[in-house]
């Protein structure tokens, strides 16, 4: 027995109430729930009963939770957070490495430049940081303006705060100290800032690909 358009709308409304709005998950969950309901109805249950039994089964996956990887401020349905963690986990360790390795390396072996090179190196680093910041702002605006949500958009939202790694060195304006040595703290900031830009680029492309894939159908 196939559900009518009105019955499908009731299931969609249920998912909307549970904040399952992420395109890449909503489509498969809606399809699975409809097939579950149809199976119950084939065993002579009414639509109302079948819906109730199906939602009881799914309810646990829609409970709000947060994750260590994104921070407690970013709570979403369990099924969304679980998928986001699977996508983001390898990048989290890259991010940590990008922050810690320059600090560790420069603390142990300082890199110094001669007086005439200091300005050139500093300006190069400042320009690269500025470009990365502009690109991050572009990604933030584009994803915020996008009406469609995907799990990748959720990941992106949790990373926006990391633009401080680009803003702080830009505001202070110098990556080298008075001896011409690269500052371990600012280089760590810069390295983490570039890594976050790369991570956001990766997930922005994935978000765009999801939107494109669903738009084509």
């Amino acid at each position: 027995m196939e559900l009518t358009k009105e019955q499908i709308e009731i299931v969609e409304h249920y998912l909307q109430n549970r904040k399952v709005e992420y395109l890449d998950l909503k489509v498969e969950i809606l399809d699975h729930m409809i097939l579950d309901i149809e199976q119950f109805m084939n065993k002579n249950h009414s639509f109302e009963n079948a819906l109730k039994m199906t939602t009881i089964k799914w309810e646990q996956h829609f409970k709000q939770r947060s994750s260590f990887y994104f921070g407690m401020f970013y709570a979403e349905s369990k099924i969304v957070v679980d998928k986001a963690v699977k996508e983001f986990r390898p990048f989290y360790f890259l991010y940590l490495a990008a922050y810690l390795l320059p600090m560790f390396f420069l603390k142990n072996s300082a890199i110094s430049f001669q007086e005439q090179e200091v300005n050139l190196i500093n300006n190069l680093l400042l320009s690269a940081t500025f470009l990365a910041l502009i690109y991050m702002i572009y990604i933030i605006i584009k994803t915020q303006l996008s009406k469609q949500k995907s799990t990748y958009r959720f990941i992106l939202k949790t990373q926006y705060i990391a633009v401080v790694f680009l803003i702080i060195p830009l505001l202070l304006g110098s990556f080298l100290d008075h001896k011409g040595q690269l500052s371990s703290i600012f280089m760590s900031f810069l390295s983490a800032g570039f890594m976050v830009t790369f991570i956001c680029h990766h997930f922005y492309k994935k978000h765009q690909a999801v939107i494109e894939k669903y738009k084509r159908v």
Partner: peptide, 8 residues
């Protein structure tokens, strides 16, 4: 597209 909905 499978009739009245999308399928992944």
């Amino acid at each position: 597209n499978v009739g009245n909905r999308l399928r992944k």
